[in-house]
Each structure stands twice: as C-alpha cells, then as structure tokens.
Computed example of a mutant assay.
Amino acid sequence: MPHHLMNLRHVPDDEADEIRALFEEHEVRYYETPPSRWGISMGGFWVQDADEAARAKALLDDYQRQRFQSQRQAYEQGLARGEIGGIGSMFRRYPLRTLAACLAIAAIAAISLLPFVRIG
C-alpha cells in the first residue's frame, strides 16, 4: 500500500530538488506525483513499503529541521540588513508601489463591501 511522505503543494522548487537529491543519496525507492494546476490533487512523494516509509520520514524530519534553521537564519539576517520587514520598510523602499497596492486593496474592499453597506 502506498505511503504518502510529503505534500508538494506550495513547495518551492529548490526544496523539492533537495529532497529528491536526499532520497537519491540514501537510495530511497520513491515516486512522485505532481500537484495539479487547479489545486485539485496535492501531488507528493510516495513509497510502497512501510519500512521504506519510516526510513524516508526520518530523513525528511532531519532535512526539514535543518531547512527550517537555515531559512530562519536567512530571514533574521535579512531583517538585520533591513531587506525584510513590514509595510513600513516596504513603503520606505518602494513608496509608489506600496501606495498603489494599498489603494488597490482599499478599492477592492470598498467595492466588495458596498452591497452590504447599502443594505443598512
């Protein structure tokens, strides 16, 4: 019976490539189903054997722990350099684009709420 190891929906290409390389390096006999374009099927990495699934899940747990730490470190370095931040930093770096996005959000919200405001 197939064992689902990991969902591939919203997984960056570099992460999926690293997982494929990890499985190849450790000779995990896996197969892959791609996610559908419309979000109907999730896609993912699968194995047939329960023992292989346990081994692959252990490898994935270690990999995801390491990836979390490296991505967290990169995020904190970006914050320290001022490259990553909230709306304030976006407004300082790209004032026109941020203002245009805020106006577009306000316009969409106003159009969406207009029927409900007229009811009252």
Rank of each mutant, 00 (worst) to 15 (best):
Q71L: 15
A106M: 11
H4L: 12
A54S: 12
L113S: 01
L96C: 06
D13G: 14
Q48Y: 13
R67I: 02
A56G: 00
Y75V: 01
R81D: 04
P2A: 14
I87L: 06
Q66M: 07
A100Q: 10
A104N: 04
G82H: 04
A80F: 07
R20Y: 04
L60H: 01
L59H: 02
A106Q: 07
A110Q: 07
A106E: 09
Q77F: 11
I19W: 01
L113W: 00
E25K: 15
Q64S: 06
S41R: 14
G82T: 00
R92G: 05
I19H: 02
F68G: 08
H4Q: 09
D61T: 14
I84A: 00
A54C: 09
H26A: 12
Q66G: 05
I119L: 14
P115G: 01
R81C: 03
A110W: 09
F116Y: 14
S41Q: 11
A50C: 05
Y94L: 13
A58M: 11
A74D: 12
G82C: 02
Y30W: 09
C102L: 15
Y94P: 04
L79F: 07
A101Y: 02
Q77V: 12
D13F: 15
W46G: 00
V47C: 02
F45H: 05
I108C: 06
G85R: 04
R72T: 03
Y75N: 04
G78P: 00
C102W: 10
A74Q: 14
R29M: 06
E27K: 15
S41L: 13
Q71A: 13
Y31V: 01
P2H: 11
Q73I: 01
G82A: 03
A56R: 00
Q64D: 06
M6G: 05
M90D: 05
